[in-house]
Each structure stands twice: as structure tokens, then as C-alpha cells.
Design a protein around this nucleic acid. Structure first.
Lengths: 220, 220
DNA sequence: CCTTATTTTCACTATTTATTGAAAATCCAG
DNA sequence: CTGGATTTTCAATAAATAGTGAAAATAAGG
């Protein structure tokens, strides 16, 4: 398979040490769970299934991770929903077994897909809605592309007191409305770009991220 | 600045409506806070400063967001630490004012930088350590590149009972150790790629993400 | 069917994380 | 210095989140 280029080849080690390495791996991966938007336990269950490489059943997971049946059941279900783990069966055994996605790029794509769906799309919807809400007829929903350049904060230091006192009650001017919309547009465009990038990555069946990394290393 | 292509131009609106749009924007951005690894409140404070565009002081933030002084102080400090907000002063005013980074690409880069530092680098360190821990002399820290292809779970269905019962106590074989290391290497490579990509983006002073999106749209 | 193995659900509890508010520290003008 | 304005800290508390375990539901074998 893969031979370590300069280190001594691996040798038989005590089982306790083997399990301890697995445990530390599981803990490390679990810590990163929040980074991909799942609970620590869910990440740990994934890590266990991944590092084991074999299908495990609920009891295996409970026992190894010292978590309750309910927790194990919930975590496994979520992982299946995310597409990070698949169900498997063994004949002559009524239990359900679970197997982790082993390809890291497939893993990335699945995580990306869920996060886009759960976090980015709702945000985009809200921003679009807000963007339109100060313009009474339907505004162009189709990629209103504002120039995304950095807009300096127009040193408002001087007129501060004046502004603060004066415009407390009277209606906001159309200039202020425009500025609000511009700011929303600016972030909208950012989120849209992220979304498009993500979709593309999710849609690519190959090693999209890896390719991206390679390419970027040449151009940026 | 930016004229809406087909919608009616913005007009003066009641202040209440204006503030409500701001509030909804703040709420939406706050919800997404966890996605960039900060607390909801921290994200809301940023959103307020961003959408306002003017420097605000702690009392302004407290009042508008209805949060305590302590919370406002902490959130602002964190935002300054992340580089997402800068301190400002007005002459004749002893209070400190805060101004949000307005360029969305600079924003992205700063968020990326912090997340790399806080989440990815520690994980990389741990994975490296684990990777080496079953090989007694120092193993090649330099980009041990395992073939990242998906490794099928070698249908372990058959020998399940045997394995489970048999190897309970005896030492693990070197083949098992190698497999463990391979799995760790595989994820290590994934995380390394992400890290390199992130670093590149952070380092690019220009609109790195935007460029990336454009390029990827051509190649993937 | 009925029995038993297995999984799921969910009210409750534990744990973690966020927020408050008041005291302490700091800062600055006079 | 001193006194008031401002900011920071942090122990206490609140809120949110995660985890448990036993009961209910489901599935499979006889």
C-alpha cells in the first residue's frame, strides 16, 4: 500500500497503545467537530468508524465511546443524514452496522453540501429579501451585482453630534436608504460568491478542492 | 454610487422601517455567527457596526442591541482581536468608538486567518504527532503523501466474529498499524491541503476568493 | 400472531457556553 | 494628585446545548 519513505516500517505494538492512538485521533477529530457544524460526539462517532474502517453497530459505538444508547442512535442517524456514514447489514445478525465514508474528498463535499444547505442558502434568502424590502416594486433578484470594492467609512467623525441629535425623528433620506442597500448588496455579493464556489465544489465529482489548491497556488 | 438597474430608485422611508431593516440584517448575520466560529452576539455587534458604517461607542451598541455593558465590552474586544473592527476616537469625547471593516474580502481573509490559527493548525499538529507515534524514530514530517483514493472497507463482514473474539488480547499486527497510519495520513493530507489553500487566501492581499471563484468556474 | 431483539423517541438531567452587573481598574482633565 | 468618566474583569446566573435512560415503537423469527 504505502511505504514510509524514511522512517522505520511499522511493527507490531501492544493493543493498548494501538487503542490509545485511536482514542487520541478520535478526540482530536471530535474537537474539530464544531468547525464543520456538527456536535463533538457526532464527529467522534464518525472518527471512530473512520479509523476502524469496519462496520460497527450501535453497541460497539456505545461501548468504545462510553456514550448512551440514545446518544449513539441519534449521532449515527445524523451522520447517515449527512451522508457521512452508510448503513450496512451482516447476515445472520439482526443488528444494524455503520460504515464511514472513507474518501476524504467525498467527505468534504458532503460536509460542504450540508453546510450550504443549512447555513448559506437561508442567509442568502434573507439578504435578498432585505435588499428588496426598501424598494417597493420587485427589485432585480437576479444577481444584482454591486461593485464590491471597499467602501471607506467616509470619516463621519466630525458631524457626529449633529447627526445624532438632528435626525432622531425625521424620516431617513433616500441617500441613507441607498447606502443601506449598498451595504447589504456588498455582503450579498460576498455570500453569493461563496455559495457559487461551494456549489461548484459540491458538484464536482472529482477531487475539486485538491484541484483548486493546485490552481490557486499558481495564480494567487 | 450604484444605481439599481430596473427597480425604482430608493426613496425616503420612515425611520422605524429603516431601523427594522437594519435589525433584520443584524439578526440574519448574527445567526450565521457560528458558521465563522464566533458567538451570535459578536456577529451581531459586527453587523451593527457594519450596517451603520459610522463609529459607535459601547453605549450605542448596548442600547441598540439591548445587551449588558460587560457583554458589549467583551464582544468589541474580541472583534478588535480578530481584526474585524478597529478602535477610533473623537476629539472632545473620552469614549472609545468602534468601526467595522467594510471590505468584505478583507473581512473574509481575517476570519479565515483566525480560524486557521485556532482550529486547523492545532489539528494538524495533533495529527502529525499521532502519525509519528507508532513509528519510534522521527518519521518524515514533510508532507508524507499517501494516495488519497477511497479505500474500500475490505468487506469485513465475513470474519467478524472470528476477529472480534480472537484478537481481543494479542498485540496488533504491523499490518494493522500500517492501516491505522494510512488512515491518519489520508486525513492529514486533506487537512494540509485545506490549510495551504487557506494560507494562500489569507496571504493574498487582493480579492483572492473572488479570483478563485472565477477560476474554478472555468476549470471544474 | 406472539415473542424477543433492536432501534427510536423524548422528558429529564447534566454540561457547556453566554450574559449580566457590580466592583475594580484604568484613564484623563484640571 | 484627585475625582469623575470610562472600560475591564469576573463571579454569579441564565440560557442553550448535549446526553441519558427507560419506555414506546418497530422489525424479525418462529
Amino acid at each position: 500500500m504505502y511505504a514510509y519513505p524514511m522512517a522505520r516500517p511499522p511493527e507490531a505494538i501492544p493493543r493498548a497503545q494501538f487503542l490509545e492512538v485511536q482514542d487520541r485521533f478520535i478526540a482530536a477529530w471530535g474537537q474539530m467537530g464544531t468547525a464543520w457544524g456538527v456536535s463533538r460526539t457526532m464527529a467522534e462517532v464518525y472518527a471512530l468508524l473512520y479509523i476502524t474502517g469496519e462496520p460497527l453497530n450501535t453497541d460497539d459505538v456505545m461501548e468504545r465511546l462510553r456514550i448512551s444508547r440514545g446518544n449513539a442512535s441519534m449521532s449515527l442517524r445524523s451522520l447517515v443524514e449527512w451522508g457521512l456514514v452508510t448503513r450496512a447489514h451482516k447476515r445472520g445478525d439482526r443488528k444494524e452496522y455503520f460504515l464511514a465514508e472513507q474518501d476524504p474528498w467525498a467527505l468534504s463535499r458532503k460536509v460542504m453540501r450540508e453546510r450550504l444547505r443549512r447555513e448559506v442558502l437561508p442567509l442568502l434568502a434573507t439578504l435578498h429579501e432585505l435588499r428588496d424590502s426598501t424598494t417597493k416594486d420587485r427589485a432585480p433578484r437576479t444577481d444584482a451585482a454591486a461593485p464590491a470594492g471597499l467602501r471607506l467609512a467616509s470619516s463621519a467623525d466630525a458631524n457626529a453630534d449633529a447627526a445624532h441629535a438632528a435626525d432622531a425623528r425625521k424620516p431617513v433620506t433616500s441617500a441613507e436608504v441607498r447606502q443601506l442597500n449598498d451595504r447589504i448588496d456588498t455582503l450579498l455579493e460576498l455570500v453569493q460568491t461563496i455559495e457559487r464556489l461551494g456549489e461548484r465544489f459540491v458538484g464536482s465529482e472529482g477531487k475539486g478542492l485538491k484541484l483548486a489548491a493546485t490552481m490557486l497556488s499558481k495564480f494567487i
